[in-house]
Simulated scan of single mutants.
Amino acid sequence: MNNARQIGMALFEFQEKYGRMPDVTTIALVKQDTATDLNLGTKSSNDFFRQLMAVAITQSEPMFYAKIAGTHKPDGIFTKAEALKKGECGFTYFTGALKTDNLGRPIMVTPMIPGTHQFDPKPFNGKAVILKADNSVTSLPIIIKTGHVMVGGLDLMDPSNPIWDGHPPVVAWPDL
Rank of each mutant, 00 (worst) to 15 (best):
M53K: 07
F64Q: 07
P123H: 03
M21Q: 15
L98W: 00
T138R: 12
I27V: 15
L84T: 04
A83R: 06
Y18Q: 12
T95C: 10
E61P: 08
F64P: 06
G87D: 07
I77M: 04
D120L: 13
K99C: 01
G96C: 09
F94Q: 00
P123N: 06
L52M: 09
P121D: 05
E88V: 00
L84Y: 03
A133K: 04
Q32H: 08
G104S: 14
P62G: 02
L84A: 05
I107K: 02
L38N: 10
S60Q: 10
P114Q: 13
G41D: 10
A66S: 09
K122E: 15
I107Q: 03
T92Q: 01
P123A: 05
A97V: 14
L140D: 10
P111K: 00
N102T: 11
I57P: 06
F48Q: 11
Q118A: 13
Y65S: 04
S44W: 01
S60I: 02
T116G: 04
C89L: 04
C89G: 04
K73T: 02
V109S: 03
L29C: 08
F78R: 11
I57W: 05
G76V: 03
G104H: 12
P22S: 07
G104C: 12
Q118K: 15
M21Y: 08
I57E: 04
A66V: 10
A54Y: 04
A83C: 15
N39I: 15
N39H: 11
L52I: 12
A66H: 02
D37G: 12
F119L: 11
A35M: 08
V137C: 11
V109F: 02
N46M: 00
D134N: 15
E61N: 03
L103W: 06
A83L: 06
F124P: 04
R20N: 02
K99Y: 11
K122S: 14
S139V: 14
D101Q: 08
T36H: 05
N135V: 09
D37N: 14
A66R: 10
M21W: 05
A97N: 10
P121C: 12
L140T: 11
T26N: 08
L52S: 01
M53F: 15
Y93N: 07
V129D: 06
S45R: 06
T92D: 03
P111C: 01
K73C: 05
H72E: 07
K122H: 13
I142W: 13
L29E: 12
P141S: 12
K31V: 08
D134F: 10
R50I: 06
D120Q: 07
D37R: 07
P114A: 13
L84W: 04
G76D: 02
